[in-house]
């Protein structure tokens, strides 16, 4: 199955069924453990992570392919700190995050949070943020595409193009947010 990094996909895996708030707590605890563990256990931890991925039918090779960026950073860690285990701790952390986001719908998480009255607002704002981020990415990439399609070289005019992109991207974003807020309101979403 094709895996997109940090992107929820529906599956019948065991971890998908665990309550999202429990998973969030597990994420926090596991990352603490990962940084406090003895060096040797870090290897065991890594093996556990990989088996957890296998159990949830996450394609390890496909994850590997998409994680080139993180792998490079790990290698930089290794070169600068001369510590194999530091690098491994870092990879463990990335793997935990990948497993968490792959098996947890952020919407489920934010809705589970709203069940606890203290976290109600946090949950709502979390889901609102998650809705708005792709909208922003979309607005800016649209503006950049519009410039490039008219042969405007961003490299030749870095300053003016940056100003244009920021101003027009923000304009576009505000436009999108306002129609989006209409549609959220019409589906009775309230913060």
């Amino acid at each position: 199955m094709n895996t997109k990094l940090f992107h929820y996909r529906h599956s019948d895996g065991l971890l998908n069924k665990v309550n999202p708030v429990v998973k969030l707590l597990m994420l926090i605890i596991l990352s603490l453990i990962n940084s406090l563990l003895d060096d040797l256990f870090v290897i065991v931890f890594f093996i556990i992570c990989v088996s957890a991925m296998a159990l949830n039918r996450i394609n390890f090779l496909s994850v590997l392919k998409q994680s080139v960026f993180f792998i490079i950073i790990g290698v930089v860690f290794f070169i600068t700190s001369h510590s194999f285990f530091k690098m491994l701790r870092y990879y463990n952390m990335v793997l935990i995050c990948i497993i968490f986001t792959y098996t947890t719908s952020v919407f489920d998480l934010s809705y589970s949070l709203t069940k606890y009255s203290l976290l109600r607002k946090t949950g709502k704002i979390l889901s609102l943020t998650l809705i708005m981020i792709p909208l922003a990415l979309d607005s800016f990439s649209q503006v950049i595409l519009a410039y490039r399609s008219r042969n405007f070289s961003i490299i030749k005019h870095p300053f003016s193009s940056l100003t244009f992109i920021v101003i027009n991207g923000t304009k576009k974003y505000i436009e999108k947010v306002s129609s989006f807020s209409d549609s959220l309101q019409s589906r009775l979403f309230q913060v």
Binding site: Y8, D138, S183
Partner: peptide
């Protein structure tokens, strides 16, 4: 609304 992309919020169709 007219633009479906500005209305879809879930990660899957069901959600």
């Amino acid at each position: 609304f007219q633009d479906p992309d500005l209305q879809i919020v879930g990660e899957t169709v069901e959600k």
